[in-house]
Amino acid sequence: MADLLTFIEFSLRGLMVGAVYALMAMGLSLIFGVMRVVNVAHGEFLMLGGYVSFFAWSSVQLNPIASLFVAMPLLFFLGMTIQRLFIERVVGKPELSSLMLCFGLSIILLQGAQLLFTPDPRGFTWLLYPVRLLGWNFPMYMLMIFATSMAIAFALFLFLKATRWGKAIRAVSQNYEVAQACGIDARKVRMLSFGCGAAMAGAAGAFVPVQFSLSPGVGHEFILKSFAVVVVGGLGSLWGAFLAGLLLGIVESLITFYFSSHLAQLTFYATIIAVLLVRPGGLFGSAEA
């Protein structure tokens, strides 16, 4: 009985951490779906979101949920700008170009952040007290982060489902030619979706200084986890990214508890490899990519 309770406790913990992974991976998947670009710099968007949230807290005591209203628009415009200036030029070119371009961007943002923000680890204390939930203690901030992440994820689904631009994004991602034939401006859609993707990473990042330790290199760990998530969920699939994010959060937490954190980390990388072995196109995704 005690064992089962522990199992549930750690599954719940993992679910909550997984919500952050889901947010980030959804952005990655959205970008890929629309322009077939794997945004290797996605982790750096998350990191930037983290610094926005950190500085918002340390300068004017803005809490991370409020600072989402700063971080998300900022990252949205940054994403659009980067898309317009760089990514747009390699859309439709061989993968090598977009991969290396994003790699270059990632390095610039990462090392630039080291210069600007110093490599010092940052973080702040927000809602750090235990709350009793279903018989277990969870930190209050964790519950808030989980709830907010869920809200953002569903807002994105709603946006794609119900708005004109959202429908245009889905159209381009489902069938580029038909979408263009219907008079959708694919360039604008690409800019918009890159912005949205970056904003999603920024939103996930806003929680990093609360729950994790924020440093310029933090994106590296998250991008690899996101890769595992999107490989399981299928690149380009938003629901896939959402569910796989939660799932991998749970798996990570359970393996940490029953085995070790090393093994939990290795699981992410092993997942990437294992999934690609079985299905070179991701688990839930289409085989073509």
Partner: peptide, 9 residues
């Protein structure tokens, strides 16, 4: 691991 950022688990 050195890269760990969440100690809560």
């Amino acid at each position: 691991d050195k890269a760990l950022t969440d100690w809560s688990p």
